[in-house]
Structures are given as C-alpha cells and as structure tokens.
C-alpha cells in the first residue's frame, strides 16, 4: 500500500475485487468492468482505452506466465479507488518471477520477438507499475483526472 493511499480515510477508499479463472476468455469481461469504473471516475476515453490495455497486459501475463493457463488457478484483481488514483492489483497463483530479469525488448533480436512487450506498454500507459518481491502480484496506478 502506498503512502499516498494511506493519506485517505477508509471511507474515501472503495475496492472492487474480481476473481477469475485462468481463462483468457474472461479478460474482455475484466476490461469492460474496469472501463465502466474508469469512466465513472471521469477518465477521458483515450485514458480508459489505455488503462484497459494495461489491465489486459497484466491479466494476460498472470494467466499465461503466472498460472500457466492452469484452470484450477485463479487471478485476483482488485480495483482500488481513492480520491487521488485508480490502483489495480493483479495477483496470480504461480511461482512468481524476477521482474528485473525480463529481457529488454529493444535489445538485439528481441526487437523481432513476438512477445515480451507487455511491461513496456504498461509503463507507457500508467503512472506507476510495480511488482511485489516474488513477482506474483502486479500493481498499476493511474492518477485520477483533476487529482
């Protein structure tokens, strides 16, 4: 939990928790719910789209790399809304990974790889992207309009 979030009283903070199986067909549903929340928070349509893509990147990583498509494992998504920001946490039930070991997508032949750009895109579209120590939980954050 960030210091910024702690500055708000509990009644200023709302959370929506979604639990889904490791099935990519549920990802558009997740995007639709998050889009509704982002629009209610008065993000413009461009930002709604970019938040949606960042969310999809995180959820796809959790399903594919985290839970390895194991349908018995779940993905936990928490939308945390406070007066300053929309924070999205995506947790998987996988073995985790070292975020620092992700190959640089611009280096050498990596440019021609057909994967490995998700974190790059999340960083471009959100104000903050971070992982917990074992790499099983992603947090992405976007400052609310006017905050």
């Amino acid at each position: 939990m960030s210091a910024q979030a702690d500055a708000h009283s509990p009644e200023d903070v709302r959370e929506l928790i979604l639990v889904m199986p490791s099935d990519i067909d549920y990802v558009p549903v997740l995007e639709a719910v998050t889009g509704k929340v982002a629009r209610d928070l008065h993000f413009d349509e461009d930002s709604v789209e970019l938040i949606g893509v960042a969310l999809i990147e995180g959820a796809m990583n959790a399903i594919k790399h985290g839970n390895k498509y194991d349908l018995t494992k779940r993905v936990y998504v928490t939308l945390r809304i406070d007066p300053a920001q929309l924070m999205i946490k995506i947790k998987d039930e996988g073995e985790g990974f070292d975020p620092g070991a992700v190959p640089n997508p611009f280096e050498g032949d990596n440019l021609f790889r057909d994967s490995g750009r998700g974190i790059l895109m999340m960083n471009a579209y959100m104000d903050e992207v971070s992982h917990n120590d074992d790499g099983t939980e992603l947090t992405i954050r976007k400052t609310r309009p006017g905050a």
Binding site: E49, V53, E57, M60, F112, S115, L120, M121
Partner: peptide
C-alpha cells in the same frame, strides 16, 4: 482504436 502486446506480437510474427 487500440491493440495490446499480443496483437503486436502477431504482427511481428507475420513480419518475420
């Protein structure tokens, strides 16, 4: 309007 990294990967895969 938009695509994600998986779609981008499909384009790169086609390109190669």
């Amino acid at each position: 309007g938009m695509m994600d990294s998986s779609a981008l990967g499909a384009l790169v895969n086609a390109y190669t």
